[in-house]
Simulated scan of single mutants.
Amino acid sequence: MSTLNEIQLGLKRALLAGTLALPQPVKEKLAGTPVVRDGQQLSTDVQLMLRLQKVAREDPAEDFPIPQGRKRLTVQAGLVGGNQPVASVADSTLAGVPVRTYVPASVLGQSARATLVFFHGGGFIYGGEHSTHDAACRFLAEQAGVQVISVDYRMAPEHPFPAAYDDCVAAYRAVVAHAESLKVDLTRIAVGGDSAGGNLAAATALAAASEGLPLTFQLLVYPLTDVVGTSESRRMFDSGFFLTRKFIALAEESYTPVEADRPDPRVTLLNAEIPQGTAPAYVVTAGFDPLRDEGEAYAEKLRAAGVDVRVHRETGMIHGFLNMVGIGTDGPRAVGDIADQLAAGLSS
């Protein structure tokens, strides 16, 4: 029997999905005057979603104590992720780190599967127990036709830097070491993640190159790459577009409470040396995202080191759009494009 909270959540989800399923001219009218900044226009779907959130007086996660904020982000992810089908889901551990494996229908019968090792975003403090990125992982697995192994790394502030980094690298080493039993094709293996997870994916890719571990591709979605600088996009989009200055500060203070750790190249990737053999990268940024400029700066750093890099900016989108696979048209389209690039990056 459904609880009152479950019923209320279901009604919210239906209202949001129904509103964003309206004809485009109706959505444009409901969204209000178009938002244009830095020569970019905010997606109508995103503008309408943010407006509904404001009308509903939905306080952001960073305004609550971290345990409550975690619950808040889990609810928000459920609202925008929808119910995404995938053929198989299984929980296990690798090197003592919990993981969840998603297998799409198209590769169920394969003994060696193209695989994405995925690290979720959430500022290093949110998203544990696969609570925020389950729908995105399901969507990527089915749309790209790849196995996804999602890593549930330790989170701050309970476990500050370098705990998350250590868990992600350890989990990746374990995937490589146990490739046969995990049905992983080591000629088609990627790391990927969004935001803090993009940071961890990029850092794991550098560790893999340094250690000579096989890695075919890295998928970096609006990655955090600079904990010591302040880019123009951090100033330009620091409020009103989901990811705020307050959220970023909470994340950085929780993950790197020791200020001397912040320039460490394992967290501020713009300080990292790029080893020879670093895997090709696809870097996706969002136009209305405080982390936009540093993600693109890291892509340029990789390119300058001789890494094969492609960069794509989703000009109308905000930070967090990877989770928006269950509402509207712009989110599913953007994440569908990411899935296509992942499939291409892991093609035979």
Rank of each mutant, 00 (worst) to 15 (best):
G78F: 12
V46M: 13
Y172P: 04
G193M: 09
I66R: 13
D293L: 06
E6C: 13
T244S: 15
P257A: 11
R138W: 02
Q47V: 14
I318W: 03
T204V: 11
V228N: 04
F64H: 09
S150K: 10
S106D: 09
R72S: 14
T44D: 08
D340E: 08
L16K: 01
P23Q: 10
P275Q: 09
G198H: 00
S181P: 12
E158P: 05
D63P: 00
T285R: 04
V151Q: 01
P157V: 06
R37C: 09
H130D: 04
V169L: 00
V169R: 07
L269V: 10
R51T: 11
L186W: 07
M155N: 14
Q84E: 06
I274R: 09
N323A: 15
V307P: 04
C137E: 02
L73C: 15
D167W: 02
V169G: 08
V228I: 14
L22V: 11
V176W: 00
S106M: 02
A190R: 03
H133E: 07
T244D: 00
E211T: 09
Q40F: 11
L30F: 09
V75H: 05
P160K: 04
V151S: 07
A21Y: 11
A304D: 06
P160S: 03
A201D: 09
S88W: 15
C168K: 00
D59H: 13
G193D: 06
A17N: 12
I274T: 13
K29V: 15
A17M: 06
L20E: 11
K29A: 15
L20R: 05
Q110G: 12
R310I: 03
G10Y: 13
G81W: 04
R310H: 05
V258Y: 10
M155L: 15
F139K: 02
P34A: 14
D308L: 06
D261H: 00
I248T: 01
Q53T: 15
A87W: 00
L30D: 01
A56W: 07
V176R: 01
F321L: 04
S106I: 02
A304E: 08
V151E: 05
L186I: 00
V103C: 12
A196E: 07
F288G: 13
R100G: 10
A171S: 00
V335P: 01
